[in-house]
Simulated scan of single mutants.
Amino acid sequence: MSERVGKRSKRVRLHNTFVSDQLQEAFAKGLLKPGLNVPQLEPTKAVNNVEGLKKCLAEFKKNLPWAERLDLTNYPAADIVAKAEGRAQQPEGGEDVSAEDDFQREMYFYRQAQATVLAALPKLHKFKIPTKRPEDYFAEMAKTDQHMQKIRKKLLLKQAAMEKSEKAKKLREQRKYGKKVQTQVIQNRQKQKKAMLSAVKKYQKGMTDKLDFLEGDQDQRPKGSAAKKQINKKGPNSKKKYKDKKFGFGGKKKGSKWNTKDSHDDVSGFKAKMAHGKGGKHFGKGGKTNKRPGKETRRKMKARK
C-alpha cells in the first residue's frame, strides 16, 4: 500500500511540474491575461511518460528488507454486508467505486486497510516482530521530568492557595453565624430573665399563687423535690395573707390610714372597757395579768416534775 502511495505522490509532482512549464510558456508568448481564470483553447493531452516515472521511482527506491519498509499492495477484503444480504460479490479488483460517493469510497479504503492488516500480521509474526504493546510499556514523554516537577509544584501551590481561601471563607461564614446565634441567645436570656423577674414580683405581691417561673430551673434541682411540692401546696403564708388583707395589692399607700367621714361615723368597733381602762392586759388594777414566773421559780417547777 505504501508503494501505491509513493507512486501517487510522484505522479502529482510530475503533473505540477508539467502545469508550471505550460504556464511559463504561456507567459512568454503573452497569452496570460489579468484574472484568475485562463481560457484554454485546446484541451491538454495527458502524457504518460513511462520512462520518466520509472526513472523517478528508481531514484527514491531502496533495496531494503520488508521489515524495514512494511509496504503491502492488497485488494480490499470481502464485503461482509453484501455477503450477509446475499448479494453477488464482484471479483477482486473488479469493483467500480464512484469517486463522488463518499461512503462507498471510505468503505473501500476501510476494506483495503483490513485486508492489509490481515496480510501483514502473519509476516510480522514470522519475523518475530511484536504487534502488541507490553504491559510494562512506558512511552517517552515530550516534557522532561524536571519540567513536569515544576508544573506539579505550581499546581500544588495553586491547590493549597485555593484550599486556604475556601477555609478562610468558611471561617468568616461561621463567625457571622456564630455572632448571630450568640446575639439571639443573649436576647432570649434577657427576655427569660425579664419574664422571671416580673413573675417573681407578682408572686411577692400576692397577685398570683403559681410558681411556673421556677420550672426553668427544674433541670438543676433533683427530681421529686419535696420543697417544690410543699411550696406548690402551701401557697402564701398567713403573714402574707394578713398584709394583703390589710394593705391590699398595691396602689396608694401614703395617707391610707387617715380618718375619713365614714370611719368617724362608724362606731361598731368601739369597746368601752378598752377605752376606760377596764380591759386588756395592763389596763386598771383589777385587770387580769399573765405574768411570767421568775427564773428560780421555773427551775423549781422543773425539779418537781
Rank of each mutant, 00 (worst) to 15 (best):
S2M: 14
E3P: 01
R4C: 12
K7T: 10
N16G: 09
F18W: 13
S20V: 07
Q40W: 08
L41E: 13
L41G: 03
T44P: 05
K45F: 01
A46T: 14
G52Y: 11
L53M: 14
C56S: 04
E59I: 03
F60R: 05
K61E: 14
K62G: 03
N63V: 01
P65S: 13
W66F: 04
R69C: 10
L70M: 15
Y75G: 05
A77N: 12
Q89A: 10
Q89H: 05
E92M: 09
G93E: 12
E95L: 08
F103K: 10
F103P: 00
R105M: 09
M107H: 02
Y110T: 11
R111S: 01
Q114W: 03
V117G: 00
L118R: 11
L118C: 02
L118F: 04
A119L: 07
A120V: 10
L121M: 11
P122D: 07
L124Q: 02
K126R: 04
K128T: 03
K132V: 14
R133G: 00
P134L: 03
D136E: 15
E140H: 03
M141A: 13
K143G: 00
M148S: 05
Q149A: 14
Q149I: 02
R152N: 06
K153A: 15
K153Q: 15
L156G: 00
A161M: 08
S165A: 14
K169F: 11
L171W: 02
L171S: 04
R172C: 02
R172D: 11
E173M: 08
Q174E: 15
R175E: 13
G178Q: 09
G178K: 06
K180R: 07
K180Y: 09
T183C: 04
Q184T: 06
V185Q: 09
I186V: 07
Q187N: 06
N188D: 10
R189I: 08
K194M: 08
L197I: 07
K202S: 14
D209L: 05
D209C: 05
G216M: 15
D217S: 07
D217Y: 08
Q218S: 10
D219E: 14
R221E: 15
P222L: 13
G224C: 01
A227K: 03
K228E: 15
I231N: 12
K233D: 15
K234G: 03
K234L: 11
K239V: 13
F249H: 14
G251Y: 08
G255F: 08
K257P: 00
W258P: 01
W258Y: 06
W258S: 07
N259E: 12
T260L: 07
H264V: 12
D266N: 13
K273M: 01
M274Y: 06
G279N: 01
G279F: 00
G287C: 09
K295Q: 11
K300H: 06
K302E: 10
R304E: 14
